[in-house]
Write a protein that binds this DNA or RNA. Sequence first.
DNA 1: TTGAAAGCGGTACCAC
DNA 2: GTGGTACCGCTTTCAA
Lengths: 335, 335
Amino acid sequence: MTNIKKVSELAGVSTATVSRTLKTPSLVNVKTREKVMIAVKQAGYRPNWLASSVKSGKSNSIVVLVPNLVNPFFMRIIEGIENAAQERGYTVLLGDTQGDQQRENEYASMVLSNRADGLIQLDHSFPFSEADAELAEKVPMVSVCERIVDKPYPYIELDNYAAGRAVMNHLISYGHKKFGFIAGQRSSLIFQDRLAGMKSAMAEEGIPFDESYLVGASYDLDTGVSGAKELLAKSEQPTAICCFNDDIAMGALYELTRCGLSVPNDISITGFDNVRVSGYVNPPLTTVDQPAFDMGQRAVNVLIKMIKNEPLARKREILPFQLLERESSGPAKTT
Amino acid sequence: MTNIKKVSELAGVSTATVSRTLKTPSLVNVKTREKVMIAVKQAGYRPNWLASSVKSGKSNSIVVLVPNLVNPFFMRIIEGIENAAQERGYTVLLGDTQGDQQRENEYASMVLSNRADGLIQLDHSFPFSEADAELAEKVPMVSVCERIVDKPYPYIELDNYAAGRAVMNHLISYGHKKFGFIAGQRSSLIFQDRLAGMKSAMAEEGIPFDESYLVGASYDLDTGVSGAKELLAKSEQPTAICCFNDDIAMGALYELTRCGLSVPNDISITGFDNVRVSGYVNPPLTTVDQPAFDMGQRAVNVLIKMIKNEPLARKREILPFQLLERESSGPAKTT
DNA sequence: TTGAAAGCGGTACCAC
DNA sequence: GTGGTACCGCTTTCAA
């Protein structure tokens, strides 16, 4: 290991001067500076980041807790996080939790041990263990796309209620009256908000909500397949199926097509998230676009404010969505 | 900040005893241990990870350089990396380079400054800057799925040559003779290996390779769309299109379907990677499955061996692929 | 079994 | 402008 001392000896100066040359060159005589830089180069010296960090007490890192990495929607958020973090001099520690509480606890506790300065949670759970709950109170933490239940942490999310309404109004305007719903994680607030929005729009039109047409409990392709199967088996088939993310929607689309049904002629399908590939399936998916990249960036900005103890203008940022009316939704089939 | 000193005072012992209680309790008297643990709990003490790391000189972190995060194939690899790293007590630092050399340099240099102990490269470039090249010689680095050009770093990858052959033989067995190719990043060895494999199979059957039927230069959906357009515009249309990843293939599939062509009746399409959604498009994609998760795990194991200066059994691991014959490929159309 | 103290590699204050 | 040195928080040797 080539350290600052070796360099100082090589340059014939003190370690203090070496440090200054590297951090605040303006305070060092040009002549000396050159000597030092030569020694630095010659020794192949790099300041030890760990050492600097102990002093400053800051790791300039943030942990991101994500339930899984294969969902491109999450990845787009993380891309935004990474981008903003990198710009502000922070490094992103990846915490793939797989929804496992113990993993969450472990990753979250990295903030408690100074391994990271702050935490971004993409899931809706409070990531700290019971034992750490008290310590966690002052930890810089933001949740993005979800909200952490029963805790006053700031969050960035979509107006899921309004988005739910928008989807439903879109379908109702096409004359649909009988709906199927394929949900993801039921415990999430996202789910509840979206469903509430949909219900409200239905209620306004006097369309009853039938609980038995709400199926599924996981945000993946298979859920879409099995959910579609389940809904098709009903005595009265829905004419439109609202899926709670694009993976589910693509799974459902796949299954319906397999069954010889035409989308949207026989059944309409809608998704959420606008993952890239959703515009390249046949037919392209009607879905709700979320500004995922932007959400990630904002989360970082808020988090860094918290880390630096700067006041937050607001605890919540509700971002706009956009209903993309593509080709998987259309007029209700009249029988 | 509650540090070890505060705890030691609270417990009425020395800092050394506190440290020992936490790291090697067996060396501490039970009675003392209890006292200390109570103080620890009461103070809400967490050892400062940064401080421990300066001492040990190890950050127990690895950087992963990835060209982008939205490609689910990469994410699957990273999932494998994360999984193995977590199991072995390492943390993953995410380095989203966007193919930008400067970003690569910055992330790579984290290993030089002790911010990380090793590096996994998912791209094929040598990630260090000219200036750092010499220092980088002894850096633990592994590349996965690609190879780093002209450098003797270990790598984990697929037998892309054989995979290319397999795809081509599959299509040839269906009677195809006129092929289109839509490539991703041309500079990558992956591309070259796969293409070489395909060419070899063609040569064996006496089928000429026509350079003008090789289009595309980026691993994304749009490349598939524009590539398909380009190939369809040829005077003699290919009866099969080999795409160099699934995103390209799905883009091409989308475009062909748009044009009213039937896959595989009119044209066959094949991909690479077997990303999840490739099995849920219509028709499901014939593609080459890569053990992405496994590749990530292996990369970590090799890397940690390097970090610990353990000898490597071998510098290269070539993993098996599997040709998934799904429904996007079929008999050549006889005109 | 425990404590004092010397580091780990840098930084920054204070004095010259 | 530069050097000496205390210190960041923890670990570990050495001596008691």
